[in-house]
Design a binder for these strands. Structure first.
Ligand SMILES: [Mn+2]
Ligand SMILES: [Mn+2]
Ligand SMILES: [Mn+2]
Ligand SMILES: [Mn+2]
Lengths: 218, 218
DNA sequence: ATTAAACTTTTGATTAATCAAAAGGATTGT
DNA sequence: ACAATCCTTTTGATTAATCAAAAGTTTAAT
């Protein structure tokens, strides 16, 4: 049986490199998983042994096709569970990520399939992230970080790429919800900030935070 | 953090001895959990150290109040999850035990509370087992094993005390569902069998199997 | 070409959980 | 009282996952 730990490593490799093109550095993976670099190296070797990743020592690591398939299934479980917790159980989108982080390792395919039916075969989770199909394909959209928008741009929010509970609560409090239409009222590269109009109110964000909000032109 | 393994040990101790009166033998616990006696001894010592059980070496083990409280909460999670899987996700009662065996360790109190609301604060799971309240109290019913019934008794099925998938499928196929009314048509202690009328059909059961079906007089 | 900085890997230890097999108690029959 | 039997506990090993700190590589700067 494949452990939760292994699933987390595979999933994180996928999230850090969804296209499977780049090599991920050991340290980057370690940081993403909150383990020491030595732990990551050790697990990478185990995964390479099992044929789930390709490892070029000192250069980086990359999922194999087999590893990617497993990873995508974990992501599918995670995102369906998240949407289920929000849409069916009525939980807040800011709380469900941590729940899903655990549930993704224990819900069976059958349960996921039932949830999927009940949800009406959704394509995106509560944060705007695409839900892989059971076959492992991902819907693609062309989105742009809010931080790239120019003064006067009117766009709609399509994805919040930050799972932190406090950030999500802040977003919710300021009307920065999926599908919301916003307008760029100011942008100051020097001050590293962007100002938008959301529901008639001005909201100021640092560019780093704005980089985690992805938008599409309406 | 309390591990799944510890939760399984505590839960099993509770299920083997719900009243907390008897001492459970190491071997009995080991068998119930499918581990070797040595493993059970070792875990019992860990649990005793943590104040979750009281251990009298060579005589047996018993939950402390603290251990019992933890155990009851695991049982609550297990049973709410089971009912949720059946009533909301539409799974078969014969399949949900194994799912719940995993989910009971990862669903949060908040998720359980939401499921409980959605289910309308149920008192019994799909097998007729009582669901402990959040405070840890258990509804009590006075049931009797079907094997104790006498010829001519008319009773209704209140609990199936066997989580085995094949047994549950057999029960379902023969109309032995919760609430079903049945009548004892024959009982043969020598042949170790009992015959009942269920939905007009005769069903023959061994007395051991009939002992796992609990009934109440209508 | 050296050296320093930054990163990765290796080494050695630790913890939780488990097993097989040896050793130790308790119980029961003679 | 004395075994025989049946448990339980102990012992010694193993596996997965982790960390701290030492050692090794790569790259970039002088
Ligand atoms: Mn998430
Ligand atoms: Mn996870
Ligand atoms: Mn069950
Ligand atoms: Mn369990």
């Amino acid at each position: 049986m494949i452990s939760s730990t292994v699933e987390n490593y595979l999933k994180e490799l996928f999230l850090l490199n969804p296209d499977g093109e780049t090599q991920i550095a050991t340290g980057e993976l370690a940081k993403a998983l909150s383990v020491t670099p030595g732990s990551a190296t050790s697990m990478i070797k185990t995964l390479a042994q099992a044929g789930l990743v390709e490892h070029r020592p000192h250069y980086g690591v990359k999922l194999t096709n087999e590893g990617r398939t497993l990873a995508v299934h974990v992501v599918r479980r995670h995102r369906i569970v998240e949407l289920f917790l929000v849409n069916i159980l009525g939980m807040d989108w800011s709380e469900v990520h941590d729940e899903a982080e655990q549930l993704e390792h224990v819900v069976s395919d059958q349960v996921i399939s039932k949830m999927d039916d009940l949800l009406g075969h959704p394509t995106h989770d509560p944060h705007g992230d695409p839900i892989p199909t059971p076959e492992g394909t991902l819907p693609v959209r062309s989105l742009q970080p809010l931080s790239f928008c120019k003064l006067g741009d009117t766009v709609s929010i399509a994805r919040i790429g930050n799972q932190n509970t406090n950030f999500l609560k802040f977003a919710e409090d300021n009307g920065l919800l999926l599908g919301a239409t916003i307008k760029v009222a100011n942008k100051n590269e020097v001050a590293d900030s962007i100002t938008i109009i959301s529901k008639g109110e001005e909201v100021v964000l640092g560019l780093a935070a704005a980089g985690r909000i992805e938008v599409e032109f309406a």
